[in-house]
Nucleic acid binder design. Structure first.
Lengths: 344, 344
DNA sequence: CTGTTAGCGCGTTCAA
DNA sequence: TTGAACGCGCTAACAG
């Protein structure tokens, strides 16, 4: 309320302008703004900051970055063939975590969605505009590997989410899908389940494979029967159709494990509409529950993903690389949280 | 399969390097890469592109941007006090649309979440790093206006999402919340409803106000009784508590309009558990349905948001401003889609 | 058709 | 404690 509004003069204010207004050199202004050692006298300091305020000076990021030879930016690449590539809660959470960590350390986040047909023209790959890249990929293994190759070819440090890759400039951050799935399976076995369905998408996918392995290991050890049901695109329609077929062929299992919440909810809908009681006749569990599970009725037994934390960790690893030239850890597995509901 | 892998030499390759390898000047390389008028001979063109390929040259974005005096970047600012600022499907969709439009035109998207305590240190505000900014805000009106002021003070063109603001450098893109809400209300009135509850969050919020007005206008005209129920933070717990209190005080209405899907689903859960039949005894409707509605059982009557399209349009307006110095439209209202389900 | 010159805004290096 | 040159990588303008 005290001074006049520090309105930016239209058409950029440079260091030089500030220097002129303060009666010093641009170098002095730079020193003041960056809090350099060479102590500027309290007097000039005051004059400079006043001028900065009055002129509404904002440093020109491109100039500084060119000079410093660092972009002060992290790239986030999402490979997904559907244009709405932020539909996935997991992806969104990762990005939020990454973005916040970056901002906290003065880095910008450059977000880019990329379709497999698009890869060649992706700005993050075609130009030098970030100091490192974090990527989360979907699609076939071939498509994914093709992108990772393009990524590593840039020479930038790369962090892959929910994927494994063996390369010194690639860091892999995943959640403990296998462990979480095992825990779900053990929970069901402890409840006395002898025959399980596991709902899986048609497409092979590293994290999903890990979940399957976790379940399978427990089943083998416990002598429990495990039937895998391939549910096409994971959508409601495909899942219900696949489940119906499986029920026809194999009869009612003791429990159905959804490879993710979406398939689990679809299964629950199907069972309830078929007049099968959950969890009395069949238990149902999900995976990666975000808000979703809370809307299901009754509440879905699931495993909570540390997606936001994964994003944070990915960012931290990139920052560590920027400082020291190498990742603190090349393979990071974050724990998941088993969340019992009322469906199992 | 033909040539050696074009692997980037570690530690940047500049135009000069390419020029050297091709036996020309850096200027010629620049001309080739940017397809300039001054026709380079087919011969040199070939030599240059070969050198570019072989050395794995990637242009240095910062240098080009400094020279061109344009960031070739669009900023996306999300004001939200919760760190997981991408939890909201609406926001995510807007960002996806914006990001894709930007990429299609060679622009980068710089994403930044900002908390109200944080505003001063936000990179997008403190530096010149983008050519324009798109913002989506939550929180109190005071907080939101404070941010808009900071934004316009940068002198950059600004696009606000789901907000109104009167300033020639500000473009406002909203969806037709009022119209959508009216349609829902008319639908219920046509079904014979005489008494309505409308579920609203405690916090005032422009889009939510528009929905309320849309409903109110229809009710007034039709002589229908409308009772507003304030549901705190829109969460399940608050909503159920508020609804229970309202039912106690006013008895059963003919229909309950959720200000959004979340509150609607919470209401449905409450009714079903209380043994009230939906939609036989009470109809229920939502708003802004994304995937969510599909999981509810039975399917939720709601209004679909054109969020992705809003993002695209916001980007298009910024691009238009970059080209012509002004927005094509300063106030844009995108239509919503009424989506009847089985709950009303 | 190709090379030369100059400068975008900033920060490092040295000299005053 | 402060100032003057120089260059980061790139391109607009003009010269050859």
């Amino acid at each position: 309320m005290a001074t006049a509004p520090p309105r930016a003069v239209r058409g950029k204010v440079t260091l030089k302008d500030v220097a002129l207004a303060a009666g010093v050199t641009s170098m002095t202004v730079s020193n003041v703004l960056n809090g350099r050692q060479g102590q500027v006298s309290a007097d000039t300091h005051a004059r400079v900051t006043a001028a900065v305020e009055q002129l509404g000076y904002r440093p020109h990021a491109m100039a500084r970055r060119l000079r410093e030879q660092r972009s002060m930016a992290i790239g986030m690449l999402v490979l997904d063939d559907v244009p709405e590539f932020l539909n996935d809660h997991f992806t969104s959470q990762v990005i939020a975590g990454l973005s916040n960590i970056a901002a906290d350390h003065g880095y910008s986040l450059v977000l880019q969605g990329v379709r497999s047909s698009n890869v060649e023209s992706a700005g993050l790959l075609a130009q030098i505009e970030t100091d490192g890249v974090c990527a989360i990929l979907s699609g076939t293994q071939k498509q994914r590997h093709r992108l990772v190759d393009r990524l590593t070819a840039t020479g930038l440090p790369v962090v892959m989410i929910q994927e494994r890759y063996d390369d010194p400039t690639v860091c892999c951050v995943t959640q403990d899908d296998r462990g979480g799935a095992s825990e779900v399976a053990r929970h069901l076995v402890a409840k006395g389940a002898k025959r399980l369905f596991m709902l899986l998408p048609a497409e092979e996918w590293p994290a999903m494979n890990a979940r399957e392995q976790g379940v399978r290991a427990v089943c083998r050890k416990a002598g429990v029967d495990l039937i895998r049901v391939r549910c096409g695109d994971e959508g409601i329609t495909d899942t219900r159709a696949a489940l119906a077929a499986a029920l026809d062929e194999h009869g009612l299992p003791d429990a159905i494990l959804g490879g993710n919440d979406r398939m689990a909810v679809a299964a629950m809908m199907h069972l309830i509409e078929a007049g099968i009681r959950v969890p009395d006749q069949v238990r149902v569990t999900g995976f990666n529950g975000f808000e979703l599970g809370q809307f299901g009725l009754p509440k879905l037994t699931t495993v909570r993903s540390p997606a936001y934390h994964i994003g944070q960790r990915a960012g931290a690893e990139l920052l560590s690389y920027f400082q020291s030239g190498s990742f603190a850890d090349r393979e990071i597995v974050l724990p998941v949280e088993f969340s019992p509901g009322q469906t199992s």
